[in-house]
Amino acid sequence: MNYLLLGRYIPVTSILHKLDPRTKLISAVLFIILIVNVNNGAAFLALWGIAFLVMYISRIPPRVYFRGIKPILWFIILTAILQMLFTTGTKTFFQWRMITISDYGIERGLFIFFRFTLITLLSIAVTLTTKPIDLTDGLSFLLKPFQYLKVPVNELSITLAIAFRFIPNLLDETQKVMDAQRIRGNEFGVGSPLQQMKALVPVFLPIFASTLQRSEELANVMDVRGFRADQKRSSFRQLQWKKMDTLSLCIVIVFIIWIRWLNIHFN
């Protein structure tokens, strides 16, 4: 359950928090494109430096970031190992049938590992420092051009906004239902995996029931407050592009060019 909380917005004051969500989204996308295309040690070293810099200026302890990687760590390690075992190179250290461990394989495996962890860290940096609602605003702004391709951007963004709004509620609700059942002697996290699964069954029904009821109430409220999906709506939330954003984006671009240069130069 706590995994869902990882990467959730943490309200502290930092430059990263103050930036416009669009700046953070654009920067993250640029960096991700860069990371996918980087393939030498020097460039990765520089990227790790940037990752730590980002963590530092976000004023959120690195352990919070690394906790965010934990749930997918096994997946990353597995992918890296597979990459390592099935890549041939100039020097071979070990070979058995299809499996080889070579210099190039080790490098590829490491790079894969770095790519995944870096991408995860930077994405977490965005979600930890941006309120979900601001993220939605930023996303719907950036997706606006797709309206011309008949993508229902407005509907998507309000759906997303409401979904984000209700995630904490759903978590609270789950907690409440589990408490209510502990009171009646249902134990969680005890016994065999089968017993543990069985203990969870009576939890789902009340959650489904209350979620359904709540969405109905919410739909009624939206209805009487005049919400119509097909109508043009104005927006009370205004994104504000500040000087700091232009400056930050410039710095990001400089960094990206520098790493590209490192990547070519040291190859």
């Binding site: 409440k176 239902v177 408490d179 209510a180 059942q181 502990r182 009171i183 009646r184 002697g185 134990e187 005890v190 009576p202 029904l205 009340p206 029931a209 209350s210």
Partner: peptide, 25 residues
């Protein structure tokens, strides 16, 4: 430990706010 807690919960019955939202059977 969980066992003692389970024993406590039998002696101390607790009714949460809006307990009817917890009916499920």
């Amino acid at each position: 430990d969980k066992l003692t807690l389970k024993r406590v919960r039998k002696k101390v019955g607790m009714v949460l706010q809006f307990p009817e939202s917890q009916l499920f059977a």
